[in-house]
Structures are given as C-alpha cells and as structure tokens.
Design a protein around this nucleic acid. Structure first.
Lengths: 238, 238
DNA sequence: CCAAAAGTGTTGACCGTACACCCATGA
DNA sequence: TCATGGGTGTACGGTCAACACTTTTGG
C-alpha cells in the first residue's frame, strides 16, 4: 500500500476533539552591511492590516510543519536548501485576535548574496536591523527574541555562522558577523587562533581585496572534515 | 469588553485554511531508586491499542498549549505547579497513523515523594527507566531523546535538578541525581566544591541518617538568593 | 571494632584573555 | 609615503580534573 493509499483509508478516530488553525512564522536572518537583519513584511490583510509582521502562513492539510516552513521561505525568497530550524510553538488562545491560531516558529539563516532582492521586494518584504524591529504584530517580537537567543547559543557550538556568509569568506568578515550576532567586540588575535585551531577551514590562495589594500585571504568551511572530526568526539566551540 | 466577549465576537478570517488536530505529549521525569525514570502508559484505544506511549491528550479549543500540558499532567498525577517546559512540535503528516495530528511535546520534572502512586497506577501509568523505554508508539521515542538532551543541557546551566529532589536533600543525593542524568560518575570532592562555591544552597542543621550511619547534612535550594545572584550576572554552571 | 558512607585540599595542565606591533598595498 | 585594514605571539590567572585519606556511628 502506498503512503497516499494509507492516508485515504485512514479511519476517523478523533472526531470528538477540536481542530485548530496551525500557522508557521519564520524569523529569516541575513547579514548585510555588517549588520544582522531579519526580513519583515507589512500585513496586507486583516487582522493587523498595515502592521509589521514576520513572514508566515498557514500549514496545509497535506504538508508537514518543516515543509510548510520551507514552502513559505521559498515563496518569498526563491531559495531552497536554506538552513531552517524549528524554534518554539506559541499557543496562547488570544495570541491572534482574529481566530484561534497556534503558530510554530522557525528561524532561517540565508546567504544574502544568493538572494534576488527584487523578488523579495515584490513580495512586500524588507530587511530590518535586529533590535530595531520592535512593534511587530501579535507575539512576533517574542519570537524574534527567542530566535536571537537560539542563534547566539547555536553559533557558539555549531558551525552555523557560515550559513550567513558567502561560501568563500575572510576571517575579518566572519569576526564581524560574530560581533553582530553577540553585539560585542572580539579580540582579533584570539578569534583567529581559536577558529583556525579547530581546523575546519580550508585556506584558499586567493585574496579578497574589496575591503582593504592588503587584501584578506579567503577561506571555505570544510564540511566533510568537520563531520569527520565530529565523529571523533570533537566539539565545535567558538 | 471582557476576554470572553472578545472571543465571541471574533470574525471568521481564516475559513479558507485547514484546521488540524493538536495534541500534547508529556515526558514526565522522576528520580526513584537513584535512577532517572519517565512515566509511560499503555494505550487503551486505537490506533496503537496495547502499545506503550507517553502521557498525552488533545488540546481543547479554549485552552492554551501550556494549559493543556498542565491539565494532562494534573489529571494523571494530581499535582500542580510542577516544572514544565515546552520541547518541540512534531508535525510529520503520517506520524499518527490514525489521522493527521501534530503534537507539541513538553517535559516535566516532578518530586516523586509528592506523588500519590495509587492515583498514578489507577490511571494506567507506570515508571520506566530512561534508556529502557524504547518501542514506544509513533515518534514518542524521538520525543524522549529530545527531552533527555534538553534535560542534560538545562541541568548544567540552570538549577532544575532540585525539581527532581525533595525540598531538603543531601549533597550525595544530588550527586547521584546528576550521575543518573548524565550516565557518568563525578568526583565527589569536585562536585561539592563547585556546587557549594555557587552559594545557592542553605545548609540545615539536620542530618539525614537514612543512607549512612554517619548521616549527611541536609540542604535547601535558596531560590531568593539565586535570583539575586542572577540579577548580578551570576551564571549557574555545574 | 568494623563496615560503609560522608566529608575534606592540593597540584598540575590547560584554556581564556589581555595586550601591541609589523605588513602589504592602493591611492 | 601614508593611511587602512590584515595578520601575528606571549604571558598571566583562573578553572578543571585528578587524586587518597580521615571521620562518624550503628550494628
């Protein structure tokens, strides 16, 4: 029996219970102008018409939560295979003043240089500095706070910072990203030392001269090497 | 306008979208016989009749997710004000072979000595050693894994171990709890040193002689002191 | 008096942090 | 030639981990 056939032959076991609208809201991070930003949109429907909100949508009957999040992200950005992780599910009864909706939040990290900015703008989205995007509808500010907390925790223990940079990047670039995430300065010697000691970056023989006359060496995150190290009990820790 | 009135006057904004069954499943931890255990139940209805499962139930129209979890926990244990934290939301389409149900998992930490064990048994629940409770229905094993991972992370950085012990406990008791959680031995001198250095325990002038002839001093977690320290930037770290 | 659990300090290794100067180059 | 950002090494202090013996007392 195929999965589709199984689905069609399902009995009605739970008719006595209530069904509820389920939404997905995405906190989409990007790194532009050495600043950490998220994508916001202005609501074009009630309730909350005209107010700022995260990028979201309803979960369909025949898609998983992860699929819904990926669909919503893809519709807006045109991108696939973006880093996406579930965060938290908000289930207060009156969180949406329209009707009862529970919302599963996801955060995404994307490489802005892969993005078609016109496409994004045509969908009514815009980049907003993290920390300046308060006054969102419903409980969306809380979602952003949780996403930031998660990003900060993860970035320390998992190599996800690279998801926000081009595949080839310089050490100063990476450091500025981390400074944007944690909102504090790092000592450049210590940062380099610790980072390179982990031995997960491949140094390229090319320099990026776009930000200095001397130029900075480009590096690439070596995922295969990272996975091998992980299997041997190595822990990423910046 | 009262909250109830608001709710009744809600418009129908989202009728074009699908509604979905939402369940809550609880991973309920307890510390018995120096072992970390969770509460399981045998399903007495289809689908999955006769199989082992977590303690769960459906979310009602007029209750929040947190309230649903607290209700389910209270129905089974008779306890209130138990430590309860949301974990993850499982949303695969076919995770429940009956109908489509998404499930929000919560983990709970309870003091087993507060428990009416007859009441629990009458509700068909039993304690099962963590690590020996595989072969659960649906994706419940995955939920247990996630709960364990979260417990381990939290126990290191937040004083939640105390939620699993009596209000008055001994240092050796606490150490055995941590050994059960992390499945490894700790050096007792180092454990004491680090723990007492944090200065969040109040030493009582009574000894517990139930496990040794010499007797071990009882301690109490000083929550007020802990909160004060936290405000000054102190970090719990065991 | 002895078995069994409670309680106590020291040392060496390692890691995190603080800190300042030279290099390369385009303009 | 100079201004700008890139790149480099060392020393100190604190934290973590390893380690063994004494104390208490009920049976």
């Amino acid at each position: 029996m195929t999965t589709d056939q199984k689905r069609q032959t399902r009995k009605k076991y739970y008719t006595q219970f209530a069904k509820i609208y389920v939404a997905v809201d995405c906190i989409i991070f990007g790194f532009l102008d050495n600043t950490l930003k998220i994508l916001l949109r202005t609501r074009d429907f009630e309730p909350g018409l005209g107010k700022s909100s995260l990028i979201g949508g309803f979960v369909k009957e025949e898609e998983s939560l992860d699929d819904a999040a990926a669909r919503i992200l893809h519709d807006l950005t045109g991108l696939e295979n973006v880093f996406l992780e579930q965060l938290y599910t908000h289930g207060e009864i009156d969180r949406d003043p329209g009707e009862r909706v529970i919302s599963v939040s996801y955060y995404a990290l994307l490489k802005v240089q892969d993005l078609d900015h016109d496409h994004v703008e045509q969908h009514g989205a815009r980049w907003c500095n993290v920390g300046e995007c308060n006054r969102l509808i419903f409980d969306h500010n809380e979602m952003v706070e949780k996403a930031l907390a998660r990003l900060r925790r993860r970035a320390k223990n998992q190599p996800i910072g690279f998801e926000l940079l081009p595949r080839k990047f310089t050490i100063p670039q990476l450091q500025m990203l981390y400074e944007a995430i944690y909102q504090k300065k790092f000592d450049n010697r210590n940062f380099r030392k610790k980072l390179l000691a982990m031995d997960v970056l491949e140094k390229l023989e090319i320099k990026d001269k776009s930000t200095s006359k001397k130029g900075a060496y480009l590096y690439r995150f070596d995922k295969k090497r990272y996975n091998k190290l992980i299997q041997n009990g190595f822990l990423f820790d910046l």
